[in-house]
Every structure is written in structure tokens, then in C-alpha cells.
Simulated assay, not measured.
Amino acid sequence: MKSAILVLALSFLPELLNAVFKIRIDSFSILVYFTIIFMALYLGSSYRFYDKYKWWDRAIHFLSGIGFAGFGIAFAGTGSGFIKLVILLFG
């Protein structure tokens, strides 16, 4: 039950970033983001893929690196003064 609530809450994060902060995230990064959520919360936790496959955690970390790069590029496109710190953080 907790996983379902967490997936529902995290599903709205890209739209929330766009609505509140005017940060537009590209479609590929959103696809990677939802893939990570599905792999980590649904398959990893509910179906115990973390226990069944040793490489599962590494695959999710690899994908999250790609996702963070996409989110970082989206943050860099906003152009605010605070963005230099965010670019350094994602870099």
C-alpha cells in the first residue's frame, strides 16, 4: 500500500515542477524517470527483484544517473541566477 501511494505522489513530480517552477523536462527524461519508479518501487520492492538479481540495483543506479542528467539540463534551461549552483550540483 505504501508503494502505491509513493508511486502516485512521485508521478506528479514532473508536472509539479513545470507548474510551480516553470521547469520543462523533456520526454526522454520523464520516460527514464517513470522507468526508474517502476523498476525500483514496483519490481524491486514488491516482487523482490533486489533479492533475486544482483545487478538490479546497479541498473537502477545507472538509469538514475541518466535521469539526473536530464533533470539537470532542464534546470539549466531556466536561466535564473540560482541556476549556477544547480548546474554545479548536477555536474
Results as ranks from 00 to 15, higher is better:
1 M>T: 04
2 K>F: 13
4 A>C: 04
4 A>S: 08
7 V>L: 11
7 V>P: 02
8 L>G: 12
9 A>H: 05
9 A>R: 03
12 F>A: 14
13 L>P: 00
15 E>C: 00
16 L>S: 11
17 L>V: 06
17 L>I: 05
19 A>L: 14
20 V>L: 09
20 V>T: 12
20 V>G: 03
20 V>R: 05
22 K>W: 03
25 I>Q: 09
25 I>V: 14
25 I>L: 04
26 D>N: 11
27 S>K: 10
28 F>S: 14
29 S>H: 02
30 I>D: 05
32 V>S: 04
32 V>G: 03
33 Y>V: 08
33 Y>W: 09
34 F>I: 05
36 I>R: 07
37 I>P: 10
37 I>F: 14
38 F>T: 03
38 F>V: 02
39 M>C: 03
39 M>R: 07
42 Y>I: 07
42 Y>D: 00
44 G>I: 13
47 Y>D: 06
48 R>L: 09
48 R>T: 07
49 F>K: 10
49 F>E: 14
50 Y>K: 08
50 Y>N: 11
52 K>P: 10
52 K>H: 10
53 Y>I: 13
54 K>E: 15
54 K>T: 13
54 K>C: 10
54 K>Q: 14
55 W>N: 09
58 R>P: 00
60 I>W: 00
61 H>P: 04
61 H>G: 01
62 F>G: 13
63 L>K: 08
63 L>C: 06
63 L>F: 13
64 S>A: 14
64 S>C: 10
64 S>H: 11
67 G>R: 02
67 G>V: 10
69 A>D: 06
71 F>K: 02
72 G>T: 01
73 I>C: 02
74 A>H: 05
74 A>N: 06
75 F>T: 00
76 A>S: 08
76 A>N: 04
77 G>F: 12
79 G>E: 08
79 G>L: 03
81 G>S: 02
82 F>H: 03
82 F>T: 09
84 K>I: 09
85 L>P: 00
86 V>S: 00
86 V>T: 08
88 L>K: 07
89 L>P: 00
89 L>C: 05
89 L>S: 12
91 G>L: 15
